[in-house]
Design a protein around this nucleic acid. Sequence first.
DNA 1: TATATTTTAGCACGATCGTTCGTTTTGTTT
DNA 2: AAACAAAACGAACGATCGTGCTAAAATATA
Lengths: 191, 191
Amino acid sequence: MGKGAMTRERILDEAMRIASRDGLEGLSIGGLATALSLSKSGLFAHFGSKEALQVAVLEHTGARFRERMGPVEAATTGAESLRALLQVTLDWVDDPALPGGCPIMGACFELDDREGAPREALVARQVATQAWTVGQFRALAPQGADLEQLVFEYRAITLAYHHASRVLRDPSARARVWKAFEALLARAGRE
Amino acid sequence: MGKGAMTRERILDEAMRIASRDGLEGLSIGGLATALSLSKSGLFAHFGSKEALQVAVLEHTGARFRERMGPVEAATTGAESLRALLQVTLDWVDDPALPGGCPIMGACFELDDREGAPREALVARQVATQAWTVGQFRALAPQGADLEQLVFEYRAITLAYHHASRVLRDPSARARVWKAFEALLARAGRE
DNA sequence: TATATTTTAGCACGATCGTTCGTTTTGTTT
DNA sequence: AAACAAAACGAACGATCGTGCTAAAATATA
């Protein structure tokens, strides 16, 4: 890996951190450069535009999340996979490297009504994740089950965790998540 | 109502609209003034600071939402109340006056990690809403039920609607919401 | 080590940000 | 109609925004 690629990684790690707090729009080139002791123009040259930087941050964030999927891939059953995914997700949201929670969840509420490359990058990632999750539910639900419905409710739980934990600062947010998740699993098996 | 109060209302209606798209931070005094054909300083004088404007927008949004609660108050049972609330919420999120969805939901992911008056105003409102919803679940669930858990899952559904409808643009988002909600009601009665 | 290429820095630009000030217009009250 | 209060305006401020351009420094290649 050349030097350019290395600084690019350093930049994106810090950008991910900042975007988790301030969002992709609140992330500024100047502030990012200062935080890394780089010149604004030097940093800028790595991406060419702010929009390209935002796309890079989204992809970098997805890659960093994917690095943590070891326990999920180690699982053997659909239920185990989903349990592991949820555990990884909760830890991800609470990671100190993300002082403002998951930047992708934040981007969902920031880019939902904006057109452009960042939104497209975001949606593509969301759709891919959704497809994977559908597959996990297929492995544990009886044939004919409404798999997309189950995924809808699964994502609902993760969004509610973000809300309960970060907005309300409810200390029992994790317990609520697991209770809701097990109820969902039970319903999936029954349906 | 004096003239000052009238323009203030006009300002806040437009500010709510813009904040729904661009968030409370993306909402700018200059842009808001231009959209209303007012001078920047004249508009600014109504609030004294951007932070105060943000707080005013949050409170104004809450008031506008409360104006739509008629069907909810008309309901007689807890289940009917919650059904009506959910219906009102879905229509609210999709209202053309809010091109970017509910500004309060957006604020939840924008202010969650920021300290200050706007966050406090937001959380106070969320806590009050939560208390009201707990009361509705109490009216339909058997004694000893985990009411806070039910509210957690109720809010999960509304957050997931925002996501499915606005991010994924899933045309069956509403159907998913109602299916999840009826399942939740059934579980509440059983528990 | 000399050369070619990549990476970083410095400086400046027009635009916009939130905010302050003094003035002028508008509305209300006596 | 006169006097007062409220509201809106216009201009300017320092700061920061994203984005060019050019030169210097650092790295990779020969």
